[in-house]
């Protein structure tokens, strides 16, 4: 049904989204926890920074990434020098762009779950001898796990459709950075590519639907397991 290079785009999209969520979600959980449970001077600034990709044009986000993580950028040069890692025009770069774009969505979902949690349970854990980290891992995170799972799934689904930042930062290289939306765009640019664009769009729709259904089902199972 799909040609080998179409399959390649699908596989690449799934892999990029997986890497973006795999690296982005733990950072998002930590950030959400900082925002929800601690008070420190730079908190409003951090909050604004986290939400910036949500309101900036994706092209701008991609361009900012180019400046920071480009080969001559402050972080990009360090990464290249120390680890030999290049992000621009690579799959890893596409994953980074996805992660940054979906970061606010994931932080929000986790933060909502953390704020909906009963602080009384953490107090109870304290009086039972649980320190800060202990409480985080034995009470707070398990109870927020439906929200964290939701954040992961929504983040993953959002990654599948990420376009502007990815094409700006990682370019549109088949097999390397050309995810589904980029492949659809390329197909529409080429003469006679409508059929290919339609097929890939159909795949996009199916993936998104599967993701949403999966999150629904997993959320229900998790809530049951948590005794709610």
């Amino acid at each position: 049904m799909l040609s080998p290079d179409e399959w390649q785009a699908v596989r690449l999209t799934l892999a990029v989204a997986a890497r973006a969520v795999g690296f982005g979600l733990p950072v998002a959980v930590l950030t959400a926890w900082l925002l929800a449970r601690t008070r420190f001077p730079g908190r409003p600034v951090l909050n604004a920074l986290v939400h910036l990709p949500l309101v900036l044009p994706p092209v701008v986000t991609g361009w900012l990434l180019l400046i920071v993580f480009g080969i001559r950028g402050p972080l990009g040069a360090l990464l290249d020098e120390w680890f030999g890692v290049r992000l621009v025009f690579t799959t890893a770069g596409a994953a980074l762009a996805c992660a940054v774009m979906t970061f606010p969505v994931m932080v929000r979902a986790v933060r909502l779950a953390l704020e909906a949690g009963d602080p009384g349970l953490e107090e109870a854990a304290r009086t039972l001898g649980a320190g800060r980290l202990d409480r985080l891992f034995s009470v707070t995170l398990p109870l927020a796990s439906p929200g964290i799972l939701m954040a992961g799934i929504v983040g993953y689904a959002t990654c599948l459709g990420e376009f502007g930042a990815v094409i700006t930062f990682a370019a549109n290289i088949p097999g390397e950075t050309q995810t589904l939306p980029l492949a659809i765009y390329a197909a529409l640019q080429a003469p006679g590519g409508e059929a290919r664009a339609a097929t890939l769009s159909l795949v996009s729709i199916v993936l998104a639907l599967v993701g949403l259904l999966l999150s629904e089902w997993a959320g229900r199972r998790l809530n049951l397991a948590l005794g709610r």
Binding site: G120, L121, E123, A124, A125, T127, G129, P142, L143, G227
Partner: peptide, 15 residues
């Protein structure tokens, strides 16, 4: 502190 506290609403861990 090793001071136990029983709350008005048990506050058991639901998970």
């Amino acid at each position: 502190r090793r001071v136990g506290l029983v709350f008005q609403n048990a506050r058991l861990f639901p998970h």
